[in-house]
């Protein structure tokens, strides 16, 4: 069976001369949940918008459901659903009216529109509120309605841009459940971006990490975690003397048991082969440099470490900056 999304050397240069996406290539199989991770400005949204036909690529090719995004945009649009992070539903209309409108945009007959609206309102548990203005809905209800609207034409591929951004834990889990249900029952393909590593880990069959317009790695969450060998020791110093920390790091990294070390704020993160024996050795070095330790943690690698290894950024920083910018308007 042919892959449902095929991307070959896709590139986007904006008029200002910025290259947002540089010759990326990947494939997504039908029925897969494919995660697209990366820092803000890495090219995630640009890639989605090229696959969605909202932006035309500068060079390279992309096919969705077998149709070229440049040559057959209408067929591509018919095959995919797009749920942006903007919560783009009309809040002056009611929930049902929003679905009716969406069905009209996808050329469904009135009969089919009302059948599917009913079905989808049931799925996202909004039947009781269907005839209320969306203005009166909570954030979680709006997101659920938005997802229902994206499903009205039964797309083969659903693009989800940050599907659970700013939602409470209960709603997040509900949305994960919908995604798993639709994949299982309808064999639907999902292409999602997220900043939450636990979400990517829990949902995705495969993950691509993109940074500065280049795909760094594509693999399943499990084998990505295996790529970060050993364990991670995180140490926080109680003082922040830059000189002393800078002195200590090369010595730590020269220890035979340590694979590599990165400074992180007033502490450091060391990837080691065996945490239990590495910690005393690292302590010895730190004490000899006169640094005091505030706390130490030993972690098995999670996707956070994988993400950091490939993008050189910690998620903590990323999430903060995302909080400030996710409301800005993309054009």
């Amino acid at each position: 069976m042919k892959p449902i999304i095929e991307v070959e050397n896709l590139t986007k240069k904006y008029n200002g001369g910025v290259t947002a996406v540089k010759e990326i290539s990947f494939q997504v199989e039908q029925g897969e949940i494919f995660g697209f991770l990366g820092p803000n400005g890495a090219g995630k949204s640009t890639t989605i918008m090229m696959l969605n036909t909202l932006l035309s690529p500068t060079s390279g090719r992309a096919r969705v459901a077998g149709f070229d995004v440049v040559e057959k945009p209408d067929q591509v649009r018919m095959s995919l659903g797009y749920i942006s992070q903007d919560l783009a539903i009309d809040d002056i209309l009611t929930g049902r009216e929003n679905l009716y409108l969406q069905a009209g945009f996808y050329h469904l007959s009135r009969k089919k529109a009302s059948e599917r609206s009913k079905e989808l309102l049931d799925l996202v548990a909004l039947t009781e509120r269907a005839d209320d203005q969306v203005e009166t809905y909570s954030g979680g209800m709006r997101k659920r309605l938005d997802i229902a609207a994206g499903l009205i034409h039964r797309p083969k591929v659903l693009f989800l841009d940050e599907p659970t951004l700013g939602l409470d834990i209960q709603t997040r889990h509900q949305i994960w459940d919908y995604i798993n249900y639709l994949r299982k029952e309808m064999n639907m393909t999902f292409f999602l971006t997220t900043h939450y590593m636990d979400e990517a880990d829990a949902l995705c069959n495969r993950i691509a990490i993109i940074d500065k317009g280049i795909i760094k790695v594509i693999d399943s969450p499990a084998s990505l975690k295996n790529q970060v060998r050993g364990e991670v020791v995180c140490i926080q110093f109680s003082e922040t003397s830059e000189d002393k920390i800078a002195d200590a790091l090369p010595i730590i990294s020269s220890l035979s048991i340590v694979e590599n070390v990165k400074q992180r704020d007033s502490g450091c993160m060391a990837v080691v082969r065996d945490g239990d024996t590495a910690i005393p050795e690292i302590f010895r070095v730190i004490h000899s440099k006169g640094l005091k330790i505030n706390s130490v943690t030993l972690k098995k690698p999670s996707l956070d470490e994988v993400y950091m290894a490939f993008t050189g950024k910690t998620l903590g920083n990323e999430r903060e900056s995302n909080g400030n910018t996710h409301r800005t308007v993309r054009t």
């Binding site: 909202l54 209408d74 067929q75 018919m78 797009y82 942006s84």
Partner: peptide, 15 residues
Amino acid sequence: DRRFGFLNKMLAAPI
């Protein structure tokens, strides 16, 4: 519509 993302939603549809 452009500001709150509805325009993109219409543009992603085959209208």
